[in-house]
Nucleic acid binder design. Structure first.
Lengths: 136, 136
DNA sequence: GCAAAAGTAGTAATCATTACTGTTATTGTT
DNA sequence: AACAATAACAGTAATGATTACTACTTTTGC
């Protein structure tokens, strides 16, 4: 029941805190194995679930069928590139007021929302533009 | 290449059009098997993918790791009950203007968004209230 | 230093989904 | 109506992310 220290969990946490990407369990596993070749994929999954249950990290279901994880638990929204699949933090105003709009004409209770924006990231926009120019 | 008629596809489409629920592939499979015991799960998956690629239905990734499907392709938002997992259509004003808020300070191009509201559905709210009253 | 309990590595199992394969149904053409 | 081309199917095997299990290792309070 009581939580005990584990080096593996610390390493996983440190890895997440030191990236602005939004890695999957396998991303975490592959990267940490460079330094700790013995770590088990099950350990990575268990600790990611544990950390997100404790609220220290956030689990993102971005729609590609694979869970991503984010050490930044402050309220913010995400963008997912339809081309390369990358996940990017958005610096935008708070839009939680949309829950009020949703609460109208609804019998139950709305607690919150998850919003993902999609489109083309800056890199993919540039590549696409280069491709079009080359064609001319 | 050309699309051919298939009874199975028609039945799948009809089932989806006659429910206000948002069934999973397995829901569709189980229900249609009552009438067509020979239908294959693979056929259900293939046709659901085909229909959603053609834009006749919409694939919903509601965050439970299982794809749900909706025959209503008109723009509307969904609510997912944190208690029972049900998916409900929301009758609410259009909130697509949030993409403008997201586009500010963003280098790429934002095409759209997927927003899911969560909380407790009417039925679960009532059950919860009954439970609380019973405790007093 | 020791015992209780939490955590781990490694592997097996699960579950949704997709791919494959040999057969069946549809369709445009005689 | 019969025919050939090909889309679609049923049934099954394979895939990929995730979870469960088990015997061993760490941590921790005394």
């Amino acid at each position: 029941m009581a939580l005990k220290y584990s080096r593996q969990r610390e390493v996983i946490k440190a890895f997440l805190y030191n990236t602005d990407k939004h890695p999957t369990a396998d991303d975490v596993y592959v990267n940490i194995r460079k330094q700790y070749p013995n770590i088990s994929l099950g350990t990575v999954y268990r600790n990611l679930t544990l950390l997100s249950d404790m609220g220290e990290i956030k689990r993102l279901r971005v729609g590609d069928g694979i869970d991503h994880f984010d050490a930044d638990t402050s309220p913010h929204n995400h963008f997912i590139c339809s081309e390369c699949g990358c996940v990017i933090d958005l610096k935008m105003e708070n839009i939680d007021y949309i829950t009020e709009a949703a609460s109208k004409n609804f019998g139950g209770q709305i607690v919150g929302h998850t919003t993902y924006f999609y489109g083309y990231c800056e890199d993919c926009c540039n590549e696409l533009q280069a491709f079009v120019q080359q064609a001319n």
